[in-house]
Design a protein around this nucleic acid. Structure first.
Lengths: 192, 192
DNA sequence: TATTTACATGAACACTTGTTCATGTAAACT
DNA sequence: AGTTTACATGAACAAGTGTTCATGTAAATA
């Protein structure tokens, strides 16, 4: 019913195309041409250009939210939770790098009720991460710092990581990258 | 000749609008409406929508390249050079946050010869930064690590900083932010 | 065998896009 | 006083946009 080869091909190739050109710049005709058929046929796969974006975005965002919820409700300490957040982030990203690229670069193209919903959920994710960092500071595991700034810096470091898994280059090993990112975020770059 | 109030107003407000809506989503008619005049009048300020993007992008990019060149040719050690790169990055960003936002978010919209030129210059900037990091590793000032990855992580941390200077929020003090970013990049977040 | 399903086409639609052109006006220079 | 300069308008354009509709076909299912 849903697990069809042609359908998969459509979604995979379209995600790559949108990543390369940008959502707005990717026309329905370009999507069709990329798959070697006519424009009208695109509507046998998706209801609209807008709905394709919405479903891709909310689909992958949900993955991140679920991972964060699981970690938040666990019994680990803040440092371990932070490691798990980074680990889950890299794992999801390595499995679905093009959807993650969409999440990072194309969410602005959502229209008005969906856009607010998206931003609200993202803020919730950030708030959960910031809470973990605050706990780490209180417990003395993390240095005393501006927790909001730390949250933003960590996320900006993670957000970039999808580039390591795009299919046009030698792909990284997620576990190695995870270790490198934890190293950077925890210890910085300076020699001790 | 060039320092006209109305011109300044045009460029400032248009940069804000493009930052809010995105370049592709910002129509010439929206730019005109934002300034309370008619579409045709926009062409008294700029030659085309495309040229506006090009000139904004290459203008601010040049600032970064010049700062990097000065630092590269200085006699400081790698650690000090890295501090200067971060400092100049934050200073430029704090002075022109909306152009920096354009640089980060809208460079994809450049068309084919200009796009390659832009990417080439950005790569050169990244290469210069990576060289400094490599020197730091060789001199034992920085930990032994993947210098390319370190470069990307540092830049992704810096790229996000323009958000701290947008006019719709309480603006940060550039010098304080610079110190916080150097702290994060050099020492990470873990308590020693 | 009959029928549903998935995939495909081509023509047309209403609308939006960036841009141009001819023209106008008020202030600033010469 | 005459002329250049900066700023402004309204109408029109050609091209491109997402989407719809009626229709077709070959394979899977009943």
């Amino acid at each position: 019913m849903t697990n069809n080869t042609k359908r998969d091909r459509f979604f995979n190739l379209t995600l790559v195309l949108i990543h390369e050109k940008g959502f707005k710049a990717t026309t329905m005709r370009a999507i069709a041409q990329n798959l070697q058929f006519e424009v009208a046929n695109v509507y046998n796969y998706i209801a609209s250009k807008e709905s394709f974006l919405e479903e891709s975005l909310f689909g992958i965002q949900q993955e991140f939210l679920l991972a964060m919820d699981t970690i938040e409700h666990s019994e680990y300490d803040a440092r371990k939770k932070l490691e798990l957040v980074i680990g889950s982030y890299i794992q999801i990203t390595s499995e679905r790098p093009y959807e993650q690229a969409l999440l990072v670069n194309e969410w602005r193209n959502l229209k008005t009720p969906k856009l607010e919903e998206f931003v609200k959920r993202r803020r919730e994710y950030e708030r959960q991460l910031e809470t973990i960092i605050q706990q780490g500071i209180e417990m003395g595991q993390l240095r005393d710092m501006d927790s909001e700034l730390a949250t933003k810096m960590i996320l900006s470091t993670l957000r970039w990581s999808y580039q390591k898994f795009l299919s046009n280059k030698a792909q990284s090993n997620p576990l190695i990258l995870e270790k490198q990112l934890i190293d950077f975020i925890f210890h910085g770059i300076l020699m001790k």
